[in-house]
Nucleic acid binder design. Structure first.
Lengths: 348, 348
DNA sequence: TTGTAAGCGTTATCAC
DNA sequence: GTGATAACGCTTACAA
């Protein structure tokens, strides 16, 4: 407790000596072990540990056991829409399982992700959870990333992806296609016919799937989106902002803008308002994700609620419940939330 | 590269053997060392490492060296207003310094924080950065936390706090008092006289300091805030929402609401709008922090921009530049940003 | 400069 | 059940 200044950390041996037992017994008493330790020793060791303020050295444990018992979480970026909800889900589950989580950002780049996984490998974590959408095409760095993860798995680590299906690892996927389809269909049913899609980056899988869903949902209701009605943009607020500008410039006749994400939608809202449009009167806007922090924008945003925290939880479950079986897949779906930004079309 | 299935990780010894040198030489060649290694061996070892796909086991390194070389970042919570900007600053600086960062949440509780630091200690990181405001009073768990950190420092780790001044560790502090004072004074100069303060939790140091700053800044301009004009609430959006409701209920005559944070301000905005008020016509609202994700609320929020990312950077600098000197202190200040939510009072 | 060998703190094996 | 003792992978005196 009141350790003298500049002291070295208390080791297991210190505890053992103090308790009058062997280091082996102390180890068995303090950390789990198949073996039982006599109650008296148990007590003595625990007492000694507390008195000395012993804290196990996890690095040493990792060396001895061949692998640490913590988890690593790779996210696209700290400012990413999905970071917060996913991380919250993972962290909560991790806490319940009494596991430490190392979070690290791959900054939206497969190259960085590959590097990051490589670094992570050196920590010998129990599992790596990779959160973040992949590319449409399989790029060099995407492949490198998969190799790196495969190598990790090969060494005895576990890999879980929260992303689109298709990686050769346990995966938790949110159904972007049907989320977008449901939203589009619902709004078509509300009467919208002339639709513009803010499509995000052409090479991002998540964006691609959602656009696919939008067009499919609209098509089911007999609504066509002309090529000029699909505007690609960045997967963030500024992307939505400039895409909305482009939308204005092109003078596409539209009564509804379908954005691939809430953040993009909010950017669009800002741009339209700047153009003097009345919202939602002059233009209806909807997004996907139901980002919590955006709940106070005006008009309140119609969106699809996607269970990101649950996905995080599920990912940790997969990570903690190893299996020899083929890669497992957990699919999750969202549900449409209608709000003020897309009033029904009464009499236009 | 193409490791056979189920293989054990490549060790330094494997590399050494392959390169035809001793493990010692391989170690010196791959990881920094005072010693020089003959160029030929250097090359051979590096080649062998690449061929074998060697990745150093940081756990083993940490055991051998007595301490790891990664950093740990303790944040209040993933959904915290300050999490994202601070973490971004820290992570960026860490990346520049080629350091891994373990992030972990203390979930707004000193008790959790103490526990978390204890766990972190077991990882033997180079430094622990503690981000998050402290309490007004020194509670049991606050003290426990400080003890835990002190013990860590005693063992040779470094501690840096991003919080209010006063902890016995290197500290980066943002001047909450003057931020609030500047804002209040500026708005008083704009003509506001009847002011209500959404004060946040009474025991949170950050909130306390900002309220102090508000009243001081107003007092300097001859504006008094009656006791009923100070409403305590949660340090989040919902806190602001309900406090604004309370404000309405009390029928406090006010033309300006000063919220201790942007998030609280946004909650208030929502509540006022719900009450049918026109904003900013019927009520001016201002916050503090300049949270990026809130930039699209309407009306645009007057606030004080606080350099959180820079604080994160500065904290990492302190962590990476050890010193024997007394705890160092880096003070940072913000600047007022006037926007639409607080138009000047023309003729009321 | 290089190699040998002794640690680092912990766990696992195997006698007792 | 317990305790030597040998790993674990790496670093670092100390010799050579």
């Amino acid at each position: 407790m009141d350790t003298p200044s500049g002291s070295a950390p208390v080791t297991l041996e210190d505890v053992a000596r103090r308790a009058g037992v062997s280091p082996a017994t102390a180890s068995r008493a303090l950390n789990g072990s198949a073996r039982k330790v006599r109650d008296e020793y148990q007590a003595r060791v625990h007492a000694a540990a507390v008195e000395l303020g012993y804290i196990a050295n996890t690095a040493a444990q990792a060396v001895a056991r061949g692998r640490g018992d913590h988890l690593a979480l790779v996210v696209n970026g700290i400012n990413d829409d999905y970071f917060s909800p996913v991380a919250a889900g993972v962290l909560k589950a991790a806490e319940a399982a009494d596991r430490m989580v190392t979070m690290i950002s791959s900054r939206n780049s497969a190259q960085q992700a590959a590097r990051v996984v490589s670094t992570l490998r050196s920590q010998r974590p129990r599992a790596i959870v990779l959160a973040g959408g992949r590319s449409v095409a399989s790029t060099f760095w995407e492949e490198r990333l998969v190799e790196e993860l495969a190598a990790f798995q090969d060494e005895g680590g576990r890999v879980v992806a929260i992303s689109e299906e298709g990686m050769p690892f346990d995966t938790v996927s949110l159904d972007n296609v049907s989320a977008a389809r449901d939203l589009a269909a619902t709004l078509a049913d509300l009467g919208y016919r002339r639709v513009t899609i803010l499509a995000g980056p052409a090479d991002a899988r998540t964006a691609h799937d959602r656009v696919q869903g939008f067009t499919a949902g609209l098509a089911e209701r007999g609504v066509e989106v002309p090529p000029s009605g699909v505007i690609h943009c960045g997967f963030d607020r500024d992307g939505g902002y400039s895409a909305a500008g482009e939308c204005l410039r092109r003078r596409v006749p539209a009564e509804l803008v379908l954005a691939i994400s809430d953040t993009v939608a909010v950017g669009a809202l800002a741009r339209f308002r700047e153009a003097g449009m009345s919202l939602p009167g002059d233009m209806a806007v909807a997004g996907i994700d139901d980002v919590a922090v955006l709940r106070d924008v005006t008009p309140a945003l119609t969106t699809v609620r996607l269970p990101w925290p649950e996905a995080g939880r599920a990912a940790l479950d997969l990570a903690l419940r190893p299996t020899d079986a083929q890669p497992r897949l957990v699919r999750m779906t969202g549900h449409v939330v209608l709000r003020e930004s897309t009033p029904g079309i009464e009499g236009r």
